[in-house]
Design a binder for these strands. Structure first.
Lengths: 120, 120
DNA sequence: TCGAACGTTGACACTTGTGTGAAGGGAAGG
DNA sequence: CCTTCCCTTCACACAAGTGTCAACGTTCGA
């Protein structure tokens, strides 16, 4: 599909899709006329990228972990260097601590709302 | 405690502590000589602020939810306007979706690492 | 008492990362 | 042809973070 359709389906402006490509997060094919040509599965990937960006991860990290997250069919376990493994372990730790941080604050808000409703 | 000690204990530069105050995230007391005087519990709050900022929340939102998170003793339920309640419900939703996004990707990394280790 | 260390405000500048707008030009299709 | 989509590129906006300098007051120990 072309960039306009992807933008419509993901609700991400074309400008951003080009920006993500520039950041190495997307690598669409090109039609003979130079138009970007996005395969179907990139819809999910764009949504995933947005989620991670909204969660405060820099494009640099997202770029590094994306190959291990999407395309479960094309997981390439063989060429996993010790450095990559180490990086992933750090990112796992990072995501875990952030998950716990957000969950803690989410629950705190829930508790507050609960208290308010109870006293109403 | 004075700003230097807080900076040392939270590993957040004094520059940033003043910056957060400017952003309305901190409101320390003042000693008669004008020095900022941070009560003990602000140590945790600073750590919490860092966590939320790292998680991608803007200071604007953090400023709004902080009063409902810290100081469980001083929860002021009475003056919770319907607008505040609505905002908090939205923020709860926001934190929840981000939490789930991060957890999902964290687990995906874990699964990948697991697969790698299994094949090693 | 003198100085070092720490505190105050305010300002200026500059970086990084993300998000956007607009100009200028080519390609597709009614 | 004319509209709409796409292309590239330049430039800007905004938020967070950071360093530094000035000019000045306080604390505390040697």
């Amino acid at each position: 599909m072309k960039i306009g359709e992807l933008a419509a389906r993901t609700d991400v402006p074309t400008r951003m899709l080009r920006y993500y490509e520039e950041q190495g997060l997307l690598d669409p094919d090109r039609t003979p006329n130079g138009y970007r040509d996005y395969p179907e599965h990139l819809v999910d990937r764009v949504v995933q990228i947005r989620g991670l960006l909204d969660a405060g991860l820099p494009t640099r990290i997202i770029r590094e972990i994306l190959p291990c997250l999407s395309d479960p069919s094309t997981i390439h376990i063989e060429d996993a260097s010790p450095e990559l493994i180490a990086d992933l372990e750090r990112y796992h730790e990072l995501l875990d601590s952030r998950t716990r941080c957000l969950a803690r604050n989410r629950d705190a808000i829930a508790a507050y709302l609960d208290a308010v409703r109870r006293s109403a």
